[in-house]
Amino acid sequence: MPIFSEMTHKYLRAKKKFPNVWCSGCGIGTVMGAIIRAIDHLHLSRDEVVMISGIGCSSRMPVYVDFNTLHTTHGRPLAFATGVKLAKPNLKVIIVTGDGDALAIGGNHFIHACRRNIDLTTILINNSTYGMTGGQVAPTTPFMKIGTTAPYGNRERGFDISKLAMAAGAPFVARGTVYHVVQLQKLVEQAILKKGFSLVEVISQCHTLYGRLNKEGGPVEMMKWQRDHAIPISAAGKVPAEKLKDKFFTGVLWDIDFPEYCEEYDKVIALAQSLAEGEGVRVKGKERE
């Protein structure tokens, strides 16, 4: 453990910004650890990593890590990330967002980022509620669960995030949990390495609000629930249907190849310049890296 901790500390703005805003027992810190270990394992330079977030508990993560960090507006980190990545495609852009951030106020940006296929790595931490504002229902809150804005039970269905991303065109979709932390690090690594838009949905726990309102216990109980309800995608087809009730698959759920936008845009540039030269139009030299 001390070795882990020493490595992790190298990536933290430890002196300036700790302790953090997260409740003890919250899953977000665990996800941050997994992201840091993935970056360290891939030998990425801190200067080439950009971490972008929206608004919410999970979106406070960039403040704590020593990368190029951009804490944006509610729901819009993917739109900001689109500009950063297009301007400097050599940067590794990682988006940390929550379920309310990405799927309610940011739902439109989310589906279009999936469709557009810019090389962005999105870590979506799903705790089924709005944590920072105090336990309101989210677009991921399951049917009939309690939120402070659904005191009589949530009458809406929650999004299936992974299916939504696949349907919208994301070429890489994975799901992990806070409990399966070693697997989570590997999923983040695969997502970073994927050329194109990649999504890792992380099932996390908010025992302070969601857990308390729905009587699901403390962090330990909620992580046990993750352990008992996660089924590796590799086991799909081997598990009888009746045992799949209330369960969810984890692992890489979807991995296809599709032309990445920045690479396609390089072709646009080449085409536009060759056509312009063909017409005898003076084209200024390449002004960007």
């Binding site: 819009r76 739109a79 900001f80 689109t82 439109n108 845009y265 084209v283």
Partner: peptide, 19 residues
């Protein structure tokens, strides 16, 4: 693109200014 610059049409104006 003739100047090696980039253009993108976003999903709305909110996203446009974000980018």
């Amino acid at each position: 693109p003739k100047l090696s610059g980039k253009f993108i049409q976003m999903e709305d104006e909110i996203a446009s200014l974000a980018a």
